[in-house]
Structures are given as C-alpha cells and as structure tokens.
C-alpha cells in the first residue's frame, strides 16, 4: 500500500509522456504514410491491406462471373472498387485494371477514380494512370472534355520523363489540344488538321521563347522532335486525302509555318517533301522551288556536296 503514491506518479508521468509521443508519432506517420488518413475507419485491427487483398481477389472472381460491365452491374463494380480504394488507396491495379473495366459503362466514375489515383502521393510517378484518365475523358466521356484531357496527358508527359514507350502520350496531348481548339474556335469549321498544326506551331513558338528549340517542354521531359510532327502536320494540311480537302486558310497558315520554322530546312511549300541542293522542282509534286546550295563560282554554279560543302566538287572553288 505504501508504494501506491509511487505508482500514481509513474502512472501520471507515463500517461503524459505517452500522449505527447503518440501525437508526435501520429504526425510523423502521416508525413511518410499519407494514405493512412484516407483509410477506411472500419475497426479491422489494422488489417486493411489484408482485407484489400481478399476483396481484390473477390472482385476478380466477381468480374469473371460477368459477361460485360454495363449499366446493369456498373454500380456494383464501382462500389467494390470504392471499398478497395478505402482499404488500400495505393493499389495500382484498382485503377489500371479495375477502373478501366467500367470506362464505357460509367466514364464519369472512372475519371473520378483515376483523378483520385493521380493525386495519390505513392502513385505520383505513375504516368499511365493520368494517360488513362485523359484517354477516357477524350474517348468515352459524353461530352468529351478535351481541355481536361489535355491536362491529364500533360501530367502523364511530365511523369513519363524520357520513357520512349510513352510517345503516344505526346501524340494524345496534341490531339486533345487540337480537338479542344476546334471545339472552342468556330472559325476553324471543324478542321482538326489545321488545329493540330496551330497547336504544334504554338508549342514551337513557346519553345523558341524558352530556348528549347526542337523539344516540347523546357523541362526536358520529352526529347522527341517537334519538327517531325510539324512536318507531318504540314503535309496533312497541304495535301488532299480521301477524307480531307485542303482549305485556302490552311494552306496560308502552313506557308507561314514553313517560312518561320523551316526557312533553312528546304522543304517543298506545296507538299512539305524535303529537297536537295540544286533541285529546281519538287520530285514529289513538281512545284517550282527556290534553288539553294549552288557553287559561288559564276562559271560553275553546280550543286555543292550536301549543299554546304566548303569547296565545290566540280571546280574546287572555296565557298566561304
């Protein structure tokens, strides 16, 4: 009985120390484990991960019993996915395999799930999830939100870094921007090819301002050549195809792009085919071309090797 006061003192001191430490630890835990605060509050003794494993396998089993995910069962699938997200928000498969299953039946819910995944701290380096979000927004959502889709594609581009397997992300980004431009700018009259050229030229101009000629972004995330895409877009705008007839506005704009971007690249103003030194007419479309790369010697005037050799291979005259 005489020891009771000592126990009381220990009890009080230990209680105060425990509560101070617990509060500090709780904050620390959230700093390196931020998903903890979003976890389900169900009292399952911390077995959230195990419960999610079991639920995931049950979901796989359930999906196997369905012929397709449509309006009749999409709600149940979404509910199961939501439960999984509350148990283990870091589980990539929920979004990459689970959410995409219902992208046609309920694109809005799919985008909601994928947006949550995009904001997930653990999945912050995953570039496929924002790509899927953009893709669903562009192809499945009704009406399609191209502006938001472009934002997702841009996020994906930034995350993919130098991953060469992600070239289609860049294409999707520009396509989304072009579609958004068509949707907003009525003067384009639905001309997506011209819109794409405008988007690419706008990007080229931005890069020029930032001093990153030839790359999409100044952050060096993508090293694919913007000029190649511009050439293809110019060709699409200038050359008629089965489903496209070039417009005068488009041609005018393309000429302006060629004069600004490809003033030294020597490409045909009609069909954008590159031509060599000394050629007077385009070998692809027969258009008259401004001749370049000739020998300075008036008596010679023959094409130089590669168009810029320091000496003429025909007369030996020095060019510079």
């Amino acid at each position: 009985m005489k020891r009771t006061p000592i126990y009381v003192i220990i009890l009080v001191v230990a209680c105060v120390a425990s509560t101070i430490l617990a509060m500090k630890l709780n904050t620390m835990q959230h700093s390196f484990c931020p998903e903890k605060k979003d976890l389900s509050g169900s009292p399952i003794a911390g077995f959230h991960k195990f419960a999610s494993d079991v639920k995931w396998m049950r979901l796989v089993n359930y999906l196997g019993s369905l012929n397709t995910v449509d309006e009749s069962n999409v709600k149940q699938v979404a509910e199961r996915l939501e439960e999984l997200m509350k148990l283990d928000p870091n589980l990539e498969k929920i979004y990459k395999d689970g959410a995409l299953i219902m992208s046609i039946a309920d694109p809005d819910k799919t985008i909601e799930f994928l947006t949550t995944a995009c904001n997930n701290q653990y999945l912050k380096n995953n570039w496929q999830i924002p790509f899927y979000a953009g893709y669903v927004m562009m192809h499945n959502a009704k009406p399609a939100n191209y502006e938001k889709a472009a934002e997702f594609f841009e996020m994906s581009m930034k995350r993919s870094g130098s991953d060469t397997g992600a070239s289609y992300v860049v294409s999707s980004f520009f396509r989304a921007k072009a579609k958004d431009m068509v949707q907003k700018d009525k003067s384009l009259k639905g001309d997506e090819k011209l819109a794409l050229l405008k988007v690419l030229y706008g990007e080229w101009e931005n890069n020029q301002k930032m001093g990153a000629e030839g790359s999409y972004r100044n952050d060096g995330a993508n090293t694919q050549n913007l000029n190649d895409r511009l050439i293809k877009a110019l060709k699409d705008v200038k050359v008629a195809s089965e489903d496209y007839k070039p417009t005068s506005d488009g041609k005018k704009y393309a000429d302006m792009v060629i004069s600004k971007v490809f003033d030294k690249a020597h490409i045909c103003s009609n069909c954008t085919a590159p031509y060599d030194a000394g050629e007077k007419y385009c070998s692809s479309c027969g258009t008259s071309l401004p001749v370049w790369g000739l020998c300075k010697n008036q008596a010679c005037k023959k094409p130089l090797k590669n168009g810029n050799a320091p000496f003429c291979i025909h007369c030996g005259a020095k060019q510079k």
Binding site: S18, T19, A22, L25, C33, G46, D88
Partner: peptide
C-alpha cells in the same frame, strides 16, 4: 491524454502496406 495516454494507438506499429 485520452489519445495515446489512456487509450493506446497500436496502429502506430502497423505498416503492413
């Protein structure tokens, strides 16, 4: 006092994920 002091938080040890 109540949190961590009187009532324990064993989730502080839980890092299965």
């Amino acid at each position: 006092v109540l949190y961590g002091g009187i009532l324990p938080d064993l989730d502080l040890f839980n890092f299965r994920a």
